[in-house]
Protein backbone atom coordinates (compact mmCIF):
# COMPACT_ATOMS: atom_id res chain seq x y z
CA UNK A 1 0.00 0.00 0.00
CA UNK A 2 1.34 3.41 -0.99
CA UNK A 3 0.25 5.92 1.64
CA UNK A 4 -0.47 9.62 1.23
CA UNK A 5 2.81 10.41 3.00
CA UNK A 6 4.63 8.15 0.54
CA UNK A 7 2.99 10.00 -2.32
CA UNK A 8 4.15 13.32 -0.93
CA UNK A 9 7.65 11.95 -0.85
CA UNK A 10 7.34 10.64 -4.42
CA UNK A 11 6.04 14.03 -5.48
CA UNK A 12 9.02 15.76 -3.91
CA UNK A 13 11.35 13.37 -5.72
CA UNK A 14 10.04 14.13 -9.18
CA UNK A 15 12.91 16.45 -9.95
CA UNK A 16 15.36 13.92 -8.70
CA UNK A 17 17.41 13.78 -5.55
CA UNK A 18 19.04 17.00 -4.42
CA UNK A 19 22.72 16.77 -5.33
CA UNK A 20 24.23 17.33 -1.93
CA UNK A 21 26.21 15.16 0.45
CA UNK A 22 23.10 14.15 2.43
CA UNK A 23 20.39 14.20 -0.20
CA UNK A 24 17.75 12.40 1.84
CA UNK A 25 18.00 14.95 4.62
CA UNK A 26 17.58 17.75 2.05
CA UNK A 27 14.64 15.92 0.51
CA UNK A 28 13.06 15.52 3.93
CA UNK A 29 13.20 19.27 4.47
CA UNK A 30 11.04 19.79 1.39
CA UNK A 31 8.26 17.63 2.80
CA UNK A 32 8.71 18.09 6.51
CA UNK A 33 10.14 14.64 7.23
CA UNK A 34 13.26 13.73 9.10
CA UNK A 35 16.07 12.00 7.25
CA UNK A 36 15.38 8.70 8.99
CA UNK A 37 11.73 8.74 7.99
CA UNK A 38 12.68 9.46 4.37
CA UNK A 39 15.15 6.57 4.37
CA UNK A 40 12.66 4.21 5.96
CA UNK A 41 9.89 5.07 3.51
CA UNK A 42 12.15 4.81 0.47
CA UNK A 43 13.52 1.47 1.60
CA UNK A 44 9.95 0.28 2.07
CA UNK A 45 8.90 1.48 -1.41
CA UNK A 46 11.93 -0.29 -2.84
CA UNK A 47 11.03 -3.49 -1.00
CA UNK A 48 7.49 -3.32 -2.38
CA UNK A 49 8.82 -2.83 -5.90
CA UNK A 50 7.25 0.60 -6.33
CA UNK A 51 10.77 1.93 -6.75
CA UNK A 52 12.84 -0.30 -9.00
CA UNK A 53 16.16 1.23 -8.10
CA UNK A 54 17.84 4.46 -7.10
CA UNK A 55 20.54 5.66 -9.39
CA UNK A 56 21.42 7.81 -12.35
CA UNK A 57 19.37 8.05 -15.50
CA UNK A 58 21.76 8.63 -18.39
CA UNK A 59 21.04 10.43 -21.61
CA UNK A 60 22.37 7.60 -23.71
CA UNK A 61 22.23 9.48 -27.00
CA UNK A 62 24.40 12.24 -25.57
CA UNK A 63 26.83 9.67 -24.24
CA UNK A 64 27.57 8.17 -27.63
CA UNK A 65 24.94 5.42 -27.85
CA UNK A 66 23.46 6.85 -31.01
CA UNK A 67 21.89 3.79 -32.56
CA UNK A 68 19.26 1.51 -31.13
CA UNK A 69 17.54 -1.42 -32.70
CA UNK A 70 14.36 -3.01 -31.52
CA UNK A 71 15.08 -6.64 -32.34
CA UNK A 72 12.06 -8.88 -32.26
CA UNK A 73 11.44 -12.59 -32.71
CA UNK A 74 8.38 -14.83 -32.83
CA UNK A 75 9.45 -17.44 -30.29
CA UNK A 76 7.34 -20.48 -29.37
CA UNK A 77 5.77 -20.12 -25.92
CA UNK A 78 7.67 -23.06 -24.47
CA UNK A 79 11.04 -21.54 -25.34
CA UNK A 80 10.55 -17.84 -24.79
CA UNK A 81 11.17 -17.55 -21.04
CA UNK A 82 14.38 -19.50 -21.20
CA UNK A 83 15.72 -17.45 -24.10
CA UNK A 84 14.54 -14.15 -22.63
CA UNK A 85 16.32 -14.84 -19.37
CA UNK A 86 19.54 -15.75 -21.13
CA UNK A 87 19.44 -12.66 -23.34
CA UNK A 88 18.83 -10.54 -20.25
CA UNK A 89 22.35 -11.27 -19.07
CA UNK A 90 24.03 -10.35 -22.35
CA UNK A 91 26.06 -7.15 -22.69
CA UNK A 92 24.53 -4.74 -25.18
CA UNK A 93 21.00 -5.84 -24.38
CA UNK A 94 19.50 -2.84 -22.60
CA UNK A 95 15.91 -4.03 -22.30
CA UNK A 96 14.32 -7.44 -22.86
CA UNK A 97 10.59 -8.12 -22.72
CA UNK A 98 7.87 -10.45 -23.77
CA UNK A 99 4.90 -8.61 -25.26
CA UNK A 100 1.46 -9.44 -26.51
CA UNK A 101 1.41 -10.04 -30.27
CA UNK A 102 -0.97 -8.56 -32.85
CA UNK A 103 -1.10 -11.15 -35.65
CA UNK A 104 -1.00 -11.18 -38.58
CA UNK A 105 0.56 -7.70 -38.70
CA UNK A 106 2.82 -8.37 -35.74
CA UNK A 107 3.54 -11.98 -34.68
CA UNK A 108 6.66 -11.10 -32.65
CA UNK A 109 6.64 -11.69 -28.91
CA UNK A 110 10.27 -11.33 -27.79
CA UNK A 111 11.76 -7.83 -27.77
CA UNK A 112 15.40 -6.94 -27.22
CA UNK A 113 16.60 -3.40 -27.33
CA UNK A 114 20.21 -3.27 -28.38
CA UNK A 115 22.00 0.05 -28.10
CA UNK A 116 25.37 0.85 -29.67
CA UNK A 117 27.57 3.55 -31.13
CA UNK A 118 26.21 3.06 -34.65
CA UNK A 119 24.06 0.73 -36.72
CA UNK A 120 26.92 -1.55 -37.67
CA UNK A 121 27.89 -2.12 -34.06
CA UNK A 122 24.29 -2.84 -33.13
CA UNK A 123 23.77 -5.25 -36.03
CA UNK A 124 27.02 -7.05 -35.31
CA UNK A 125 26.00 -7.56 -31.69
CA UNK A 126 22.56 -8.71 -32.72
CA UNK A 127 24.08 -11.24 -35.13
CA UNK A 128 26.32 -12.65 -32.41
CA UNK A 129 23.38 -13.08 -30.08
CA UNK A 130 21.19 -14.63 -32.77
CA UNK A 131 23.92 -17.15 -33.61
CA UNK A 132 24.70 -17.98 -30.01
CA UNK A 133 21.09 -18.80 -29.18
CA UNK A 134 19.86 -19.93 -32.61
CA UNK A 135 17.24 -17.20 -32.57
CA UNK A 136 16.92 -16.57 -36.27
CA UNK A 137 15.36 -19.97 -36.95
CA UNK A 138 12.16 -18.13 -35.99
CA UNK A 139 10.57 -15.18 -37.74
CA UNK A 140 12.37 -11.99 -36.80
CA UNK A 141 12.77 -8.32 -37.60
CA UNK A 142 15.13 -5.52 -36.69
CA UNK A 143 13.58 -2.09 -36.44
CA UNK A 144 15.98 0.79 -36.19
CA UNK A 145 14.62 3.99 -34.86
CA UNK A 146 14.35 6.88 -37.25
CA UNK A 147 13.25 10.26 -36.05
CA UNK A 148 12.66 10.69 -32.40
CA UNK A 149 9.42 12.63 -32.20
CA UNK A 150 9.04 12.81 -28.50
CA UNK A 151 11.10 11.70 -25.59
CA UNK A 152 10.52 12.50 -22.03
CA UNK A 153 10.10 10.59 -18.88
CA UNK A 154 6.75 8.96 -18.49
CA UNK A 155 5.06 10.58 -15.58
CA UNK A 156 3.36 9.71 -12.43
CA UNK A 157 1.25 12.43 -10.94
CA UNK A 158 0.28 12.11 -7.31
CA UNK A 159 -3.21 13.42 -6.62
CA UNK A 160 -1.97 16.67 -5.14
CA UNK A 161 0.11 19.12 -4.95
CA UNK A 162 0.61 18.83 -8.68
CA UNK A 163 4.31 18.39 -9.34
CA UNK A 164 6.22 17.30 -12.42
CA UNK A 165 7.49 14.10 -13.87
CA UNK A 166 8.81 10.82 -12.67
CA UNK A 167 10.58 8.48 -15.00
CA UNK A 168 9.52 4.94 -15.50
CA UNK A 169 10.84 2.40 -17.88
CA UNK A 170 9.77 1.98 -21.48
CA UNK A 171 6.39 0.36 -21.90
Amino acid sequence: MVTERDKELIGALQKGLPLVRRPYAALGERVGMGEQEVLRRLADLRAKGVIRRHGVIVRHHELGYRANAMSVWAIPDERIDDLGEQLAGEPGVTLCYRRRTAPPAWPYNLYCMIHGQDREAVLARRRELAEKYGLDQWAHRVLFSGRRFKQRGAWYRPPQPAPEKAEVRHG
Partner: peptide, 20 residues
Amino acid sequence: KLSRFGPLYNAERLGGAVTL
Protein backbone atom coordinates in the same frame (compact mmCIF):
# COMPACT_ATOMS: atom_id res chain seq x y z
CA LYS B 1 24.84 13.85 -19.82
CA LEU B 2 22.59 12.65 -17.02
CA SER B 3 18.92 13.34 -17.10
CA ARG B 4 18.23 12.85 -13.47
CA PHE B 5 19.42 11.34 -10.31
CA GLY B 6 16.95 9.46 -8.19
CA PRO B 7 14.45 6.64 -8.18
CA LEU B 8 13.05 4.73 -11.09
CA TYR B 9 9.43 3.81 -10.51
CA ASN B 10 7.35 0.84 -11.45
CA ALA B 11 4.26 2.48 -12.92
CA GLU B 12 2.00 -0.51 -12.31
CA ARG B 13 2.88 -0.63 -8.63
CA LEU B 14 1.97 3.03 -8.39
CA GLY B 15 -1.47 2.15 -9.65
CA GLY B 16 -0.83 3.22 -13.23
CA ALA B 17 -0.28 1.37 -16.49
CA VAL B 18 2.24 1.40 -19.33
CA THR B 19 2.10 -0.09 -22.77
CA LEU B 20 3.79 -0.03 -26.17
